[in-house]
Amino acid sequence: MDAQEGTQQSQQLILAHKVFLLKHRDVPDIEKVRLKDEVLNTVKSNYMTPYYENLVADKVLDLDHSVLDSMRAKNEEEIKKIDEKIADAEENLGESEVREAHLAKFLYFIQIGEKEKALEQLKVTENKTVAVGQKMDLVFYSLQIGFFYMDFDLISKSIDTAKNLFEKGGDWERKNRLKVYEGLYCMSTRNFKKAANLFLDSISTFTTYELFPYDTFIFYTVLTSIISLDRVSLKQKVVDAPEILTVIGKIPHLSEFLNSLYNCQYKSFFLAFAGLTEQIKMDRCLHLHFRFYMREIRTVVYSQFLESYKSVTIEAMAKAFGVTVEFIDQELSRFIAAGKLHCKIDKVAGVLETNRPDAKNALYQATIKQGDFLLNRIQKLSRVIDL
């Protein structure tokens, strides 16, 4: 896996995205012809025998025995060379050379898409590694394997390993990189709030180009922030953030999406969101959460609109959003029933009446609850003391 220096995305993560598009039902057939050629060329140039076999089994690529045999022969030849280097290092050289030889074998297994053997070799390499920085680099490799295969169990365990290592030391650059990896994991597992916080923390220190380009990072940051932050925080951390302002214009519809929401231009907001839907559907980490994100963003925008009113006609709201009265009626009915919006519909008068929970009342209820909990703890403590 190419954890390249500089600003290049890992070639294997680019490959994984192309394979995802090949399997996507909304990608046109003519586009899939081009993608199939690109995937096959990448697989052949990296001699990815095990991965090729998986793609054939998934009916993504067609089986070519001559290609398979030549790649397998190349793999056997390379592994034999690496094993000879390991044996030579163990007999004639020092510990660091032994580690480098084992690391080379680990990286070769990653290159050819041999996941299980790569993870076995990772353990061997870890045992030969002493420096915390080098151990962290191995964790980043395992995280990239996790994102290549979308193995969330491996990603979660690797993040925990990294955090444990940081307790023993570690530099800020690697800590900041880990935040982006964890943010991507949180976003991919629908924890958008935590993802937004991690992305925003990393916005001025981003160096994780092996995962995705900076434009994609800003795209993810804006999408997760809009449904996670309150209006004031959104203004401070996103709308006015210089790092976001320098890039957001390069991403189609994203600037209009963010600014029209903040400026309460609801017709423009929905037009911009319609333009973004294709990008979300075609994203390998977001596509599974498309419907959920649609619901969340509509909850945010409807709540923002209704916050300004004690009551408003359904017709006025429909006009503000550029949709029909029937559409708004159906939409709000669903969100109210799900407990997402605090209002009620008066169908006779054609009016929406908001019934937001009173903040003082909520605070009073919370205080009573905490008081009861404290009294229970004191009573239990007094019984222990009496004994």
Rank of each mutant, 00 (worst) to 15 (best):
M71S: 07
Q9E: 14
A338W: 06
A320H: 01
S308T: 02
V67M: 08
N41F: 07
V348Q: 14
F147D: 02
D153C: 02
K163D: 11
D160I: 13
H102L: 03
F373E: 13
T324A: 02
F292C: 06
I368H: 02
H17S: 14
T299H: 04
V139C: 04
H102R: 08
S158P: 01
V39P: 11
N361I: 12
V124G: 03
T42G: 00
K250E: 13
T189Y: 03
D88W: 04
K281V: 10
K193T: 12
P50L: 00
V19L: 06
Q134A: 15
D83Q: 09
L352N: 03
K23M: 12
F327K: 12
E53C: 14
E326G: 04
D64H: 07
I159S: 06
F290S: 09
E116D: 15
S202V: 01
N54I: 05
K117Q: 10
F147Q: 01
K237Y: 14
I328W: 07
L13F: 05
N361M: 13
N376M: 11
D358C: 11
D386C: 13
A359F: 15
E78I: 15
D151P: 03
L178V: 08
S311V: 01
Y302V: 07
L22H: 05
E76I: 11
A73Q: 08
F192L: 15
T221E: 03
D153H: 05
P213S: 10
L387A: 10
K135M: 11
E84G: 00
D283H: 06
M317D: 01
I79G: 02
A274D: 15
K135A: 06
I385C: 03
F327I: 07
G371P: 01
I112N: 04
L234D: 03
I297T: 05
L198M: 14
Q304E: 05
L63K: 13
N197T: 13
L21E: 06
L271F: 11
K380N: 10
L352I: 15
F152H: 05
D26E: 06
D215W: 00
R356L: 04
R177C: 03
R72P: 00
I244R: 08
E5T: 13
L107H: 11
K23D: 04
T205K: 09
D62N: 12
L387H: 09
Q304K: 08
N46H: 12
D153G: 04
E315F: 10
L103G: 10
T207N: 09
P28L: 09
L254Q: 00
M136Y: 07
V222T: 06
W172H: 08
L261T: 02
